[in-house]
Design a protein around this nucleic acid. Sequence first.
DNA 1: CGCGGCGTTGAACACGGTCAATTCTTGTGG
DNA 2: CCACAAGAATTGACCGTGTTCAACGCCGCG
Lengths: 250, 250
Amino acid sequence: MTEHQRQVISSALEGRAANGKMQRLLDALPDDLQGEMLGIWERATVPAGHILIEENTEAENIGFVLDGLLAMIKDLPDGRRHIIGLLTPADLFGRAFNGKSGYRIEALTETEVLTCPREPFEALLVRSPEAERLFLLNVLDELDAAREWVMVLGSGKVVQRVASLLLILCRHKVQGAIAPRAPINLNIKLKRVDIAHLLGTSPESLSRSFKQLERDGIIAINTPYDMDVLDLGELTEAAGNALLIEDFDL
Amino acid sequence: MTEHQRQVISSALEGRAANGKMQRLLDALPDDLQGEMLGIWERATVPAGHILIEENTEAENIGFVLDGLLAMIKDLPDGRRHIIGLLTPADLFGRAFNGKSGYRIEALTETEVLTCPREPFEALLVRSPEAERLFLLNVLDELDAAREWVMVLGSGKVVQRVASLLLILCRHKVQGAIAPRAPINLNIKLKRVDIAHLLGTSPESLSRSFKQLERDGIIAINTPYDMDVLDLGELTEAAGNALLIEDFDL
DNA sequence: CGCGGCGTTGAACACGGTCAATTCTTGTGG
DNA sequence: CCACAAGAATTGACCGTGTTCAACGCCGCG
């Protein structure tokens, strides 16, 4: 690894949420591959609304989110759109080994990403079982996340889905920290419309659900993008499913 | 590989839907590992209703479906249940490398499976990059399937979800066969209640949706478990989303 | 023959989607 | 700094869809 490469990466990671994970990923690689891995990545800043991977194309790039928020989006023939999942810092996206994508990747906010061409990335995975193992674990996590969404969307009522979303955000926020008794402050970076598309509902219904949770004393809404979860237990209750409880040591 | 092992496996695969895939998986392995892989599997027949992997436990087994139908099921606190996904012949289940499972695996019909202890399976994947690659590809497929469900469940109307389900079943049935013009006969092995839990709706709504599709001339219902898809194009239309169209060469 | 599981049908009601109007916020230019 | 415009969120009213509850028909089985 050249000094130049080290600098590119360390400056890219500077102060980013994705820093820790990226470091762990790199450390798990054999020394000689670390340099190779670093050498193929390039940093980019994309504005909100930018499309990183088009639907139904063989994606030629693999990406790694440093900062910001991306979404996997599917447009329906009737003009509606559906958000299949979110990509947050430290998430990988792109379709290594996996053909064309059935949805597109779009930036919901201005986003910092590392990208690299698919070919050398795949080649590196093929050559390095360690790298492939890391990638496999990453895919397994994505699979869990996707199944979790299946559960959330299967739950009938909208309030339950909203509660579930908030729970997931909470979990993401506290990230293994010990039992959070105090209110958890959430900084939502999604517009109401986007949340609606994510939960398969309308902005109007969302608004009502949020209000209901607030009336029930479960959350406090400061601005549409800033709210506090007052009672995690009640929130879990409101979600109606037994998701994620074990992730907080209540 | 001993002659005995060959016989165990070949008799297990005899006439099974999973035969082709299993053979392909084995062929991709280096010779010396084929025997090892075969040696750890054991065949079992489980009755409908049997639970193969309990929720929230570290699953000690990996499984491979030979025949029948399994489901990933999550029980909700309010007594309702939700089916997250189905496992059909040639599907792998269990949680290699992946900790405890958030749902349980239950047999919906009498099912034939191959099972093996998790430890040696993982060990084999670690030792053989080829095996790991196969596993990775399998997980990637599961991920696609899970995301597909996310889309299906996100679509508002029940008829659309039902149509989507039928489409998926059709695709599964014709499996790469060339353009099916004639009616496609579907043999549904799911009870109405199970379909309801899978689609996040009620049996009553299901019944009405099926009837509507029949009234529209899209399907013909012979018995609740036996129906013909008369017009694949219309069915796709009714599904409302652009899923899977490219999978049939219409 | 009667019982029980399963699927369907019908009616009443609740939930959520849709449309329209209003408020709040944000960003722009005077 | 204020006025104004555009976008976003909320609120309210209405209506379609789906859930719920109940009753009925259909088999398969004891």
